[in-house]
Design a protein around this nucleic acid. Structure first.
Length: 261
DNA sequence: ATGCCTTTCCCAGAAAGA
């Protein structure tokens, strides 16, 4: 069984590349982030011929997450029970949904960016990650294979950014953000780190500007956090760097994980 | 990278991303 996660940075802008990638990579289930289309605007007709059913949690211009599965989609749950919202609980954003796909339960996440450590968005990011921890605790400690995967907008360690000095006083690397990831792992989840494909680190994101991809100026912020039942079945994990090349890519590359359940 | 691209809103330029 093959599962994957990919921040597509607009599913409509990426649709030709998404379809091509689904044909080539052939994941059984893929979690998508930043679909950037409304709840009912996901292009399901484009992926249905490939055998994928779609569960989408969208809001329009921003955010949006989905699970595409050719192993069935059951028990779809959108959002978090204790979602703090931004700027407050009256404005919830489409940043996560969970679904059961055959033998596994998966949760697609698009963690808030945080903007700057002084910005209210940063406090929202930390609160949101706390709510995520509470939402996944039962699945994380359960016996069914489970993973929460997606764009976490946090680099777990200094090795996960191309130049730690360039990120001084920036979001994505602060001790508080990393502490929320550690608390998430403490529910029973392990970081499935992709193997090295090229360069010293398995980065998953490269800025569009200044040729960052070709200069190796990347970050590992797209993560697969898996419970014990799933980690034990991982046979391979890698970053599909080919998807970051060529014309019209997302600024994120997919992370693919093969399972031997 | 102090926004050097990209996408969305929708037709001009602001907002957001990490």
């Amino acid at each position: 069984m093959r599962i994957a996660t990919w921040n597509v940075n607009s599913v409509l802008a990426r649709l030709p590349r998404l379809v091509e990638w689904l044909e080539q990579a052939a994941p059984d289930v893929v979690c998508l982030q930043e679909t950037k289309v409304g709840q009912d605007a996901f292009p399901t007709d484009a992926v249905a011929p490939l055998g994928y059913a779609v569960a989408h949690h969208g809001e329009g211009r921003w955010n949006g997450v989905a699970v595409l599965s050719r192993l069935g989609l059951e028990d779809v749950v959108c959002g978090l029970p204790a979602d703090p919202g931004f700027p407050d609980v009256h404005t919830l954003e489409a940043r996560t949904l969970a679904a059961t796909c055959g033998p596994v339960r998966l949760r697609s996440v698009y963690v808030p960016n945080g903007r700057t450590p002084e910005d209210p968005h940063y406090a929202y990011k930390l609160r949101w990650l706390g709510a995520l921890r509470d939402a996944v605790a039962a699945d994380a400690s359960g016996s069914r294979p489970f993973a929460v995967m997606g764009d976490f907008n946090v680099a777990p360690a200094d090795d996960d950014v191309w130049d730690p000095a360039a990120f001084a006083d920036s979001t994505h690397v602060t001790p508080a953000e990393r502490a929320t990831l550690a608390a998430l792992r403490e529910t029973g989840l392990a970081d499935v780190i992709p193997r090295i494909a090229k360069g010293p680190h398995p980065y998953t994101y490269w800025d569009y500007r200044a040729g960052a991809f070709h200069k190796g100026m990347g970050m590992r912020i797209d993560l697969v956090y898996a419970n014990a039942a799933l980690v034990g079945s991982v046979s391979d994990a890698w970053v599909d760097r080919e998807a970051r090349k060529g014309k019209g890519p997302s600024d994120h590359a997919p992370v693919i994980v093969d399972l031997d359940l």
